[in-house]
C-alpha cells in the first residue's frame, strides 16, 4: 500500500458528540454484499427527510462539496463494529477525520483501510470548526511526518498512537501481509490449542 504522509484539502464540519455508527450509516443500508455504493448512504437520515428531500446538513451544503477532511466531535463512531461506517466515509471521498476522540473499534477499522483519524486538543478543535464554518474554502494540510495540521495561520498539533502513525508513513496500515509471514507459528498454535469442532479431539 502507498504510504500516507500528507493529506491536503478542504474540510466539512460535522457537529455532534458521540455520533454513532447507526447515524453514520443507517442499518437498512447494510443490506449489501459489497461496500461499493456506501458513500451515498453516509449520514443518510441526517441529510434527507423521509420523502428523500435534502435537509439542512453540511454534507448537502455546496460550500463544503469535495472536502477531503471531516471535522468531528468527541466519541465519534461509537456503537457497532461494522466497518460500513468508515467505508462509507472513505467512499464518500474523505481521507482523514480530525476530532476530539474516536470509538475504539471505529478507529481500528478506519486505520486498517487507510482512513486517517487524528485527535486534537478541544480548544484547537473549536478553532478549526469556527475557521471552516466561516471560511469553507480554507485549505488544510495534515502532515503526519510533523504531526501537525496547518490551518489558517496556525500549526495545530495532532495525535495518533505512534504505531499507527508509523503504519501510515510506511504504508503498512493493512497488516495482512505481516500476519501471513508467521503462518508456521500459527499452524503450530492451531495444532496445540483446543478448539470447538477440532476434528478428532473436540467436537461432535
Amino acid at each position: 500500500m502507498p504510504p500516507i504522509k500528507k493529506i491536503q484539502g478542504r474540510a466539512v464540519p460535522i457537529k455532534g458528540r458521540d455520533i454513532d455508527t447507526d447515524r453514520i450509516v443507517p442499518a437498512r443500508f447494510l443490506k449489501t454484499v459489497t461496500f461499493e455504493k456506501l458513500g451515498e448512504a453516509l449520514f443518510y437520515d441526517e441529510r434527507f427527510d423521509e420523502a428523500g428531500n435534502p435537509k439542512d446538513h453540511p454534507l448537502n451544503d455546496p460550500r463544503f462539496a469535495g472536502a477531503s477532511l471531516m471535522l468531528v466531535e468527541a466519541g465519534f463512531g461509537s456503537g457497532s463494529s461494522r466497518e460500513h461506517a468508515p467505508q462509507a466515509i472513505k467512499r464518500a471521498g474523505f481521507k482523514a477525520l480530525v476530532g476530539e476522540s474516536f470509538a475504539e473499534i471505529f478507529f481500528n477499522n478506519a486505520t486498517q483501510i487507510g482512513l486517517v483519524a487524528v485527535t486534537v486538543a478541544p480548544e484547537d478543535l473549536g478553532y478549526l470548526f469556527a475557521l471552516v464554518e466561516q471560511n469553507p474554502e480554507t485549505e488544510l494540510v495534515l502532515d503526519l511526518e510533523k504531526m501537525e495540521l496547518l490551518a489558517g495561520d496556525r500549526a495545530i498539533p495532532v495525535f495518533l498512537p505512534e504505531a499507527v502513525r508509523e503504519a501510515f508513513l510506511t504504508g503498512r496500515y493493512d497488516p495482512l501481509d505481516l500476519l501471513l509471514e508467521a503462518m508456521d507459528q500459527v499452524r503450530a498454535l492451531d495444532a496445540r490449542r483446543a478448539g470447538p469442532g477440532k476434528r478428532g479431539k473436540y467436537g461432535e
Partner: peptide, 20 residues
C-alpha cells in the same frame, strides 16, 4: 471482541489479528 470486516478477512486468511 467485535472486529471490522477487514479483520474478518485477516482471521479467515490467518486465524490471527493484529491487536493492542
Amino acid at each position: 471482541f467485535g472486529i471490522g470486516t477487514t479483520q474478518v478477512r485477516d482471521v479467515l486468511a490467518t486465524q490471527t489479528l493484529a491487536v493492542e
